[in-house]
Design a protein around this nucleic acid. Structure first.
Lengths: 193, 193
DNA sequence: ATATTGTGAGTGAACATTCGCACACATAAC
DNA sequence: GTTATGTGTGCGAATGTTCACTCACAATAT
């Protein structure tokens, strides 16, 4: 689906509101106020609030797909690819804190099939790619192969999530990218052959 | 503070509701319906909904303190202590899924000082203890000391959280305790000297 | 002139919370 | 021992607010 200019403006406004106050505080009223139109006008562009959220997720999914592709393209070797992935991800969160707020709010979407499935799918795809990179690295004897790839992937993902969550809850009180860099160095030591 | 019988009943009912439908769906109406009294009667026992949530957190905090103590008491050696902690934690979540729902819903409490501080404090205390165990283990040359203790702790905590979150979102579709056991074996390999 | 977008008022539902009243039971007063 | 008074608990109705969403009408643009 192609979004109109107004639709994109609404989506972006919603994203910045989420970054500021969390996804709980996202209301149609807030979006319209920030844009400078009236509540009901929003409904000229989206049939429901859920559709706006879906728009946000769609945007993020495209974003993520791009990152994954660029990682696979540029870096060579499992360790380098994982590092590139890690770095890009922190960069993405850094530039777009709302991404973290949305993507880590699975609970919030729990009662909505469309939304929860989309979040689940994004998580799933990312996880799958990491697992494959790790497996390849294990076969090349670049990464230690005495532990299951999917568990290594869980360790990577879990740690990344925790750091980002802490960053968010501390109101972005530390530099996510440099913290992420340090963390990667540690993880690298643990998983290298 | 000491809770009356009714208060404990209300807290426990709230906990089971959270386990069933998530913290978003917790309403005074639902609690009262499940107990079999009228909404307003709840307010004879709690001044506000927040006070009920605070009651839940208090209960969990006591629970956690007990676990931490028992871990420090029984196990000897850093690795064993960490394993005991891991195991107990998964056991606790397994027996009390609402604990996970509550403790990992930091976003939900974001707009409430009392609640968010309490959650933060629980997280903090746990993390601190893990860091100390790890540091001790590093000094004893039991754990590898070429990586910072606080980052190892983040890896441990982050991974644990991820697994529990997945378990919750998959509607408890796998056995958390045995999955946690396997995961611990992997982590152990990574962090041992 | 017709399609698109915006406005203002309104609706209904969900929700936390308040209030006046009633009843049971205990304690104290006569 | 009966009467008064206090206390704890429950009920039903109501209040006030927030929210997503609708609709008739007006402005604007092509």
């Amino acid at each position: 689906m192609n979004y109109s200019e107004r639709q994109i403006q609404i989506i972006n406004t919603a994203i910045s509101l989420i970054a500021e106050k969390g996804i709980q505080e996202l209301t149609i009223k807030n979006i319209s106020k920030k844009i400078g139109i009236v509540e009901s006008a929003i409904y000229r562009h989206f049939a429901s609030k859920q559709d706006i959220l879906l728009g946000i997720l769609t945007l993020f999914k495209e974003n993520k797909d791009q990152i994954l592709q660029s990682v696979q393209g540029t870096a060579s070797g499992a360790s380098e690819q994982l590092k590139a992935f890690f770095t890009k991800r922190f960069e993405q969160f850094s530039n777009n804190p709302a991404f973290a707020s949305v993507i880590f709010s699975e609970d919030f979407f729990r009662n909505d099939k469309r939304l929860s499935e989309m979040v689940y799918q994004i998580m799933q795809e990312t996880q799958q790619l990491i697992i494959e990179i790790i497996k390849a690295g294990q076969q090349q004897k670049e990464l230690r192969d005495d532990v299951p790839a999917d568990q290594l992937a869980a360790i990577l993902t879990g740690t990344l999530r925790l750091i980002v969550t802490r960053w968010r809850l501390s109101e972005f009180s530390f530099d996510l990218q440099s913290e992420g860099q340090k963390l990667w160095q540690t993880i690298e030591k643990l998983i290298k052959e």
